[in-house]
Amino acid sequence: MIVGYARVSSSGQSLEVQLEALAAAGCQKVFSEKRSGRTAADRQQLQECLDFVRSGDTLIVTRLDRLARSVADLFQIIERLSAKSVSFRCLQQSSVDTDTSSGRLMLAVLGAVAAFEADIRRERQMEGIARAKAAGVYQGRKPSVDVGRVRELRAAGLGASDIARELGIARASVYRALS
Score class of each variant (00 low, 15 high):
Ile163Phe: 04
Ala155Ser: 13
Cys27Val: 00
Gln76Thr: 14
Gln18Cys: 06
Arg151Lys: 14
Ile60His: 11
Ala108Gly: 14
Asp73His: 12
Arg7Asn: 05
Gly136His: 02
Lys84Arg: 11
Arg63His: 05
Glu79Gln: 07
Ser82Phe: 04
Leu67Ile: 08
Val174Phe: 03
Leu167Ile: 14
Gly26Cys: 00
Ala177Asn: 11
Leu105Met: 04
Cys90Ala: 05
Ser161Glu: 15
Ser10Leu: 02
Ala156Thr: 09
Gly4Arg: 02
Ala72Ile: 11
Arg63Ser: 15
Tyr138Ile: 03
Phe116His: 08
Ser32Asn: 10
Asp162Thr: 15
Ala24Val: 08
Phe75Tyr: 15
Gly168Val: 04
Gly37Ile: 06
Gly157Met: 04
Val71Gln: 09
Arg149Ser: 08
Gly111Trp: 12
Tyr175Phe: 14
Gln13Asn: 04
Asp99Glu: 15
Val96Leu: 09
Val30Asn: 01
Arg69His: 12
Glu152Tyr: 07
Ala114Lys: 01
Ser55Phe: 10
Val147Ser: 07
Ile60Trp: 07
Ile60Glu: 03
Ser173Gly: 12
Ala6Leu: 02
Gln44Pro: 02
Gly56Ala: 06
Ala170Phe: 10
Val17Gln: 13
Gly168Lys: 11
Asp65Ala: 08
Val96Ser: 00
Val17Ser: 13
Ile129Thr: 06
Ser55Tyr: 11
